[in-house]
């Protein structure tokens, strides 16, 4: 079972996700809500990497499947605010309006072009949905991890990932999310989710992932 065997779904992110969830829950041990990636014991280097094999992190595995959907294909989120989203009253009013049951449903990852950290329209749209969810769940804190493809040097990519994460954080803060509820980190090129060493795989690995803390 390799990631590439999972059917690609262009426009139906949810379908892909639920397929991945089924895979994860049927084949692995854990399917809790933890978003933390714990480093697993050393695996056989030569073993093919199955999505369900990454027992450490259901979230990551799920995202790996989701990433078969090209970067620009996620559906537009519902309009959540017509006025000034940074307005505290609006933000409060939106709380009960968030149409997303989970952060993952709002869209966990935004994607970046090569060596860039500015936000695409697509990324802004996903972040806007994330903001709605975060504001609707006042007790929650999030961690945004910036990721890079393998086509850069290690230390530079750590720096670039930090920029991607903070670009996402700044946008969320601009939508009225309390910055104290957002932590950022960069994984550089150390935690790719797509194994493919080609342009498609690199595009998937250039992202910022918003994960639930606590």
């Amino acid at each position: 079972m390799t990631p590439s065997q999972i059917p690609t779904q262009q426009s139906s992110g949810l379908k892909v996700r639920s397929l991945a969830l089924m895979l994860v829950s049927s084949l692995t041990l854990v399917a809790c809500a933890s978003t933390k990636k714990t480093t697993p014991p050393i695996a056989d280097t030569n073993a093919p990497v199955a999505v369900a094999n990454s027992e450490a992190a259901p979230t990551i595995a799920q995202a790996a499947a989701e990433t078969r959907a090209p970067v620009a294909s996620a559906p537009l989120g519902p309009v959540i605010a017509s006025g000034n989203a940074t307005n505290a009253d609006t933000a409060r009013a939106q709380q009960s309006f968030s149409p997303y049951a989970t952060l993952a449903e709002a869209g966990e990852r935004i994607f970046f072009p090569t060596d860039r950290f500015d936000l695409t329209d697509e990324a802004r749209s996903i972040l806007t949905r994330q903001a709605a969810w975060i504001k609707a769940n006042p007790g929650k804190r999030v961690l945004i991890a910036g990721n890079c493809d393998e086509r850069g040097t290690r230390e530079y990519n750590l720096a670039l990932g930090a920029r991607r994460a903070s670009a996402a954080r700044d946008f969320l803060a601009g939508l009225g999310v309390d910055p104290d509820r957002i932590e950022t980190v960069s994984y550089g090129k150390e935690r790719p989710i797509d194994e493919r060493p080609n342009a498609e795989g690199w595009a998937v690995n250039r992202n910022a992932q918003t994960m639930l803390l606590d």
Binding site: I42, N53, A56, E190
Partner: peptide, 10 residues
């Protein structure tokens, strides 16, 4: 290094 590329142990 060991493990798969998407789950690297270093």
């Amino acid at each position: 290094e060991s493990g798969s590329r998407t789950n690297r142990v270093k």
